[in-house]
Design a protein around this nucleic acid. Structure first.
Lengths: 336, 336
DNA sequence: ATGAAAGCGCTAACAC
DNA sequence: GTGTTAGCGCTTTCAT
């Protein structure tokens, strides 16, 4: 099935009546070649359907355009969005995204193997489950790596993350301004760098505003099901508080659904604030007040850092913090 | 930054005191080599951190493990799921997913260029916006291609799709069994192969069951916003019907939210059936009855077809239809 | 079982 | 500006 021998520069050269190198030059930006021969080459190439073999080229060039995209939890719509934006940005910048899915329990060694087998010129790691150990491998083997919303690692690798400190503060302020004075926090049991950092900031700022955090409720993972679980743990003590901050939006939505089916009204009985501003948060059934994480800004900073790392002279900033802002919706009461 | 010269088979050979070919053989499955020399090679390779350069290898082998994943609309969570499953499946099967994002208005030529530049050994196209024209290019250049949930194309390319006929029928039956007799259809204006085919099947089966379809309402795209738009168009005539089938779940959720905020109660006033069974459909706020499309089955059929195409002797089936089934939830009334 | 040598498709340094 | 030549890292006959 896969028969047809591919057409090579040699074939084109023969047809155009020039040398192999002329063909190469015709396809190399800024090579010294007369427009006349270039035209001849291009015509021949067109006729034969010739395409430069980038794999062969990368052999001589000692570099590829491949960039590994290490990603887990694609079912999280925020992550899917990031991957989408990243891959588009990479292509636009002349790179080719190479998808390396990561699952809990995978072998970090195999992952780094793949990167090296294919000689990727860089890698991007998003979501916090892939172990930091991978970063050390990348560093050792000279693979430029950028981390997105991930914990710092021992190895030197630039990171891009949204402003977790501000996010926690904004969540606390939003509850405060909604009139809340006694709050709680609902989060995942599974550790997550950004969620945990945000939680800490939230608790600190809540305390500063005089809103003591009465208790915390947990679900297993930072998704809808985790929110439902956290709500179940929360409900018996619901009367003690008037505001809740949830670890992320997915969790908040599950939390909302669960407490509502128990008869609690939002925001009358309780104000709720999430984080991420996923598309679903804006849906009428939820109308969730949340802290927005600007995916496009995160991605463009990430790409800038990677490109600087790969092509640039200077080191990119070790950490780029992307600003966040509050999106006020119906899940927090509006005080006059 | 990207300094370190990569270690080659030559280096390993020297350290192990053997020839280059011995090294190659040590890494080639089923090559004739004594376990003694293999051990020597492996030890040296380990010490140097040697990895076979697959790009160089592919030059001699005349084939790569690269598979292009042409994907658009990754913000659709169902698509993200498919991409996730596909990439994991490909990696497991020894292939490497190469992500080629597609946006409306992109140039099909550039896309095929990339595939050829990198000598991909196959391609998978999901979602129906990328033009069928790409398939013709693939065929002409001998790139094995599998289509997922896409319209048939002129070029010969195996397709995998869920059973649209059954899906339409199940939706009609679900409404009928919920007691509906006068129904409507809400869909996107933007054409979509699977959605359009499902609509046709739905209308036909509804008629057979004696439920005349009174009218159709449309939104622009098959997403939440499109559902809201369709609902706006629907509401003035809401009284004429007792059941609605929506083009897909995302659209159904927007539709639900919009009609509910107008005071309509589901399923008391109206039963609603979607299609896809996205995660959100199960959320308490929606509890949407829907036709489930088994993403895992779709993906494994797709991979099987691709692998058969690339490695196999026989042609895979031109079309693989994946069964669907109804998931009954709260958006349709239960009759005794 | 092993090494030498040729060649995969390409680019670049070197002569002219 | 153009052709010739060497070489990128690898696999694979072909001898031995």
């Amino acid at each position: 099935m896969n028969g047809q021998r591919s057409v090579t520069a040699e074939d084109v050269a023969r047809l155009a009546g020039v040398s192999r190198s002329a063909v190469s030059r015709a396809f190399t930006n800024g090579a010294s070649i007369s427009s006349e021969t270039r035209d001849k080459v291009m015509a021949a190439a067109d006729r034969l359907g010739y395409r430069v073999n980038y794999l062969a080229r990368s052999l001589t060039l000692q570099r590829t355009e491949l960039v590994a995209l290490v990603v887990s939890d694609m079912d999280h719509s925020f992550r899917a969005r990031i991957v989408d934006l990243l891959s588009r940005g990479l292509v636009k910048a002349g790179y080719r995204p190479f998808l390396l899915p990561w699952s809990d329990g995978d072998d970090a060694g195999r992952l780094i193997d793949m990167m090296l087998h294919y000689n990727v010129s860089g890698a991007i790691m998003t979501s916090d489950t892939p172990p930091g150990e991978i970063a050390a491998h990348c560093a050792r083997h000279g693979v430029p790596l950028v981390l997105v919303n991930k914990a710092p690692v021992d190895a030197h690798a630039p990171r891009v993350l949204h402003d977790v400190e501000a996010a926690g503060r904004l969540a606390a302020e939003a509850l405060f301004e909604a009139g809340c004075r006694r709050v709680a926090y609902a989060g995942p049991r599974r550790p997550s760098y950004t969620i945990d950092a945000r939680r800490a900031a939230f608790l600190r700022h809540a305390a500063e505003l005089g809103m003591r955090c009465r208790f915390e409720a947990n679900g297993a993972r930072p998704n809808y099901a985790g929110g439902v679980e956290a709500a179940a743990e929360f409900l018996p003590r619901a009367g003690e508080v008037d505001g809740v901050h949830c670890g992320n939006d997915f969790l908040a939505l599950g939390f909302l659904d669960r407490i509502r089916s128990d008869g609690l009204r939002v925001p009358a009985d309780l104000s709720v604030v999430g984080c991420d501003n996923i598309a679903e948060a804006a849906w009428t059934s939820y109308d969730l007040t949340t802290v927005t994480q600007d995916a496009e800004a995160v991605v463009s900073a990430c790409l800038a850092a990677l490109i600087e790392l790969v092509e640039g002279e200077e080191e990119p900033a070790p950490t780029t913090v992307i600003p966040v802002r509050l999106v006020r919706r119906g899940s927090t009461s509006h005080r006059a």
